[in-house]
């Protein structure tokens, strides 16, 4: 595939954004006040920093997400050739998924998926 097409796409993309924002900057009426710069938080005045320490519970979800993320990577080439290879590919992927399903059951059983 043409990398030239990619370059063209890139340039056109940049061009569009530059044109759109500069037209808006030229013609739009402008007013500014401190409230406009506030992050919108359901009408409540935001206080403190947004970067605060999170609960450790999130990390377990992130790890489990990452593992299934890696699993998906292996299933992509499988999905591409599944139709061509037929039953063999299906059984192989089934074994793969069952083994990972055990992991999901384990996580479920250990209440790793429960929010506390």
């Amino acid at each position: 595939m043409g990398s030239s097409a990619l370059v063209l796409f890139f340039i056109v993309g940049v061009f569009f954004i530059v044109i759109a924002t500069s037209i808006a900057a030229l013609f739009a009426p402008r007013s500014s006040n401190p409230q406009k710069l506030d992050p919108w938080e359901c009408g409540i005045k935001p206080s403190g920093n947004a970067w605060i320490q999170f609960k450790i519970g999130y990390y377990l979800f992130a790890i489990i997400y990452l593992i299934f993320d890696v699993e998906v990577v292996f299933l992509v080439p499988w999905a591409v050739v599944m139709k061509k290879m037929g039953t063999v590919a299906f059984v192989e992927a089934l074994i793969f998924l069952v083994i990972l399903g055990i992991g999901l059951l384990y996580a479920w059983n250990k209440k790793a998926l429960k929010w506390e």
Binding site: I63, I64, F74, E92, F96, I99, G103, A112
Partner: peptide, 21 residues
């Protein structure tokens, strides 16, 4: 290797849960 990868992922998931829990 394809099937072994699933066992590896299973092992890492169990290890992560054991440690985090």
């Amino acid at each position: 290797p394809f099937e072994v990868v699933s066992i590896l992922l299973l092992a890492s998931m169990i290890a992560a849960i054991v440690v985090a829990k």
